[in-house]
Design a protein around this nucleic acid. Sequence first.
DNA 1: GACTGTGAAAGGGTTCACAGCT
DNA 2: AGCTGTGAACCCTTTCACAGTC
Lengths: 256, 256
Amino acid sequence: MATGRTHRPATRSRGIPEATVARLPLYLRALTGLSERSVPTVSSEELAAAAGVNSAKLRKDFSYLGSYGTRGVGYDVEYLVYQISRELGLTQDWPVVIVGIGNLGAALANYGGFASRGFRVAALIDADPAMAGKPVAGMPVQHTDDLEKIISENGVSIGVIATPAGAAQQVCDRLVAAGVTSILNFAPTVLSVPEGVDVRKVDLSIELQILAFHEQRKAGEEAAVAEAAAAVVPPVRAAGNGRKGPDGDMPAVMPA
Amino acid sequence: MATGRTHRPATRSRGIPEATVARLPLYLRALTGLSERSVPTVSSEELAAAAGVNSAKLRKDFSYLGSYGTRGVGYDVEYLVYQISRELGLTQDWPVVIVGIGNLGAALANYGGFASRGFRVAALIDADPAMAGKPVAGMPVQHTDDLEKIISENGVSIGVIATPAGAAQQVCDRLVAAGVTSILNFAPTVLSVPEGVDVRKVDLSIELQILAFHEQRKAGEEAAVAEAAAAVVPPVRAAGNGRKGPDGDMPAVMPA
DNA sequence: GACTGTGAAAGGGTTCACAGCT
DNA sequence: AGCTGTGAACCCTTTCACAGTC
């Protein structure tokens, strides 16, 4: 799960595997749904189905947290909600700043799932002076000049970067200098951060490209080949010979 | 990497590991940057740094594609760009529809990274009749009623769901029925799809929760404990006793 | 001398299958 | 009888380290 680098080398915090941590929010969401429907207990099979995983994995995951189930019965929904929330650190509230209030930043600011479960948008920050003071999601946008002040006054330790790629590293550096130690990055760049700072990346075009890969496979090889038509300047191998690529060499077409 | 389910069981298409596929877009982006700066060749060490991975991993990844480097020299940038693009299926163009043109959908429609590398937004679709005809990102929004027609007329095989959670499964079903076989889901729900359809999920609040977990660890255990103050009704264990959770039992506070 | 390509080793993660509790 | 909790087996991924090539 791509992290700029970071994610403390072999830390796996008190023994909960990273893969399990990444699934806890999934379980939590499924459990919250059950809780709202006042379902008192749930089996690993049912909960796994609701979370979209298989039950063996779920049971193994829960076993890292402790023995929170009852054999022959299942799991107590409310109890599990609490335990997972606590494990994830959602029993405290996390002030978050969003930097870069373009389309995406605004979408994030308005995103309900943010505000719910333990996160509170403490400030919206943008570099454009024309944005300053404008209300987005019922909050006035503040100018980047005040970034450091905002971070420290609100005790913010989590920052969301939704700026253009070019500004991301600079924003990141300022966030880190001001005390932020976790960053969620939507800009399509690799951020470099000092040891001890966590970066997670969300990248739309990467996800699409992975889908395209699988989509291409489904269609068989024909589709790709059928596309070799109009001729553009092909990038020819520098000192090329002795190539051993599986699918044949450069055709006469180059993608945009 | 959560996929609703799917991802053909043991397919790993022609032997490229899934983990490698997920990194190819990263390499591609780094290479594109080098290409724009007219850098002719790059070593595994340099490229790895630019992509935010280590060089051994990168070399291993490339070895699955073929022997595209030159010992003692490095990789030809243009050549690699082409090979990776081809491998990912980006030498053909993929028409994409975005369903749900709220804040997020609009952000996606405006996102440049979409339009570049092989993807073309073929249509924006929303269920709100008031949105119909309105231009977003220079395109008129179309009504959900025409979804099937739009999919088939444009030969769309990739759909992006940016609707509220409640509508996502229904939209998904219609997309699939109309012929879409890859879905990028931004709605916070588990989608169920038939065999052969790929789903990838992007979930903002899950990413934040994972960050919160690590953030909590950094702060040590004290911070979490210090939060136990005002008393609300605590969810007491149903038939609870003999608990063996590592951190102690239910305190007197319950998160929202 | 420099750097790739890759076997082999090590490390995680997932799945199996069943012992153990209610 | 039902369902959890978990060792053991399996599989995938990462890392190491070096032989092979330019």
